[in-house]
């Protein structure tokens, strides 16, 4: 008995799996009754998107996604949730998000985006070349004065400013 050749189906299957995982997680983040669950939904969505990045051959961006988003931003958000969590006045605040109108607006928006995508010709390549490692080209692009050196340095300034600003804003005021 000869098994059918499944090779052409592997990539689409992985894609659909990852896409479904990401989208379902995102929807969970939107609808979960508890905010902590929403944060976990967000984490799952981050992982799903990171997987999609790897499928797109963007290994560096995928790794940065995992490190920065999951390791940094998400932790920050969870800290935020913990520090602003249960107090008298927030108890019972976030039972279930009222979803009717947001869901309608979001659905309409999604529909509109689909229509826009449908009607636009992006002149995309149907079959892209095999993915190459991207870390070296990205590094060169960032440090090349002809390319992105200035924005790169500016963004480091931005991060510094954000760091100082956040520390300043969040410091405890003793009155």
């Amino acid at each position: 008995m000869k098994l059918p050749d499944l090779t052409p189906y592997i990539a689409p299957a992985v894609f659909y799996g990852l896409a479904a995982f990401a989208v379902i997680s995102a929807i969970a983040a939107a609808t979960a009754p508890k905010i902590v669950h929403a944060a976990f939904g967000l984490m799952a969505a981050f992982f799903g998107v990171a997987g999609l990045y790897f499928m797109l051959g963007a290994d560096f961006v995928g790794l940065a996604q995992v490190i920065v988003y999951v390791g940094g931003i998400l932790v920050l958000l969870v800290f935020g949730i913990l520090m602003t969590g249960k107090t008298r006045s927030t108890l019972g605040l976030e039972e279930k998000p009222k979803l009717l109108i947001p869901a309608f607006v979001g659905g309409l928006f999604f529909f509109g985006l689909l229509l826009a995508l449908h009607g636009t010709d992006f002149a995309a390549r149907a079959v892209p070349p095999d993915p190459q490692p991207t870390t070296a080209p990205i590094g060169r692009a960032f440090l090349d004065p002809e390319q992105y050196l200035l924005p790169f340095e500016l963004s480091s300034m931005l991060l510094l400013a954000a760091l100082v600003g956040a520390a300043y804003l969040a410091r405890r005021r003793r009155t």
Binding site: L77, L93, L99
Partner: peptide, 24 residues
């Protein structure tokens, strides 16, 4: 997929009252 994620994010922003959730 991007459009779906974006719409989900929009729904989150619109539906939540907790500011941290809006950040999510």
């Amino acid at each position: 997929v991007g459009a779906a994620l974006f719409s989900a994010g929009l729904v989150t922003v619109l539906a939540r009252r907790n500011a941290v959730a809006i950040l999510i």
